[in-house]
Amino acid sequence: MKNMTCMNEQQHLMHIITLASFAMDDTRLYLDTHPDDCEALKYYEKNREIRNAALDEHNAKFGPICSYDVYPNNYWNWNERPLPWEVR
């Protein structure tokens, strides 16, 4: 994993989004087969809050990562930033 101290703000927010999203991904699968596990439900909600906060901040400062969140402003800028699979 990349050294946290040399991340810029955009990378730092994406890092939080990646971690919180993965925690939700993994918990979602567990909840699919254990729908009444209270601890898992709490863990899911905690990570949802973290993810949503980071996502809101990222969307405001650096643009959306989901196309439903694009506010075009006269130009469709959805494809502006490096695409996720590109070499950094």
Binding site: K2, M14, H15, T18, I65, C66, W85
Partner: peptide, 14 residues
């Protein structure tokens, strides 16, 4: 399906 512009795990092949 909706797409999020990120990879589930970061890649950085040098």
């Amino acid at each position: 399906w909706s797409y999020e512009k990120r990879l589930q795990y970061p890649l950085n092949i040098k």
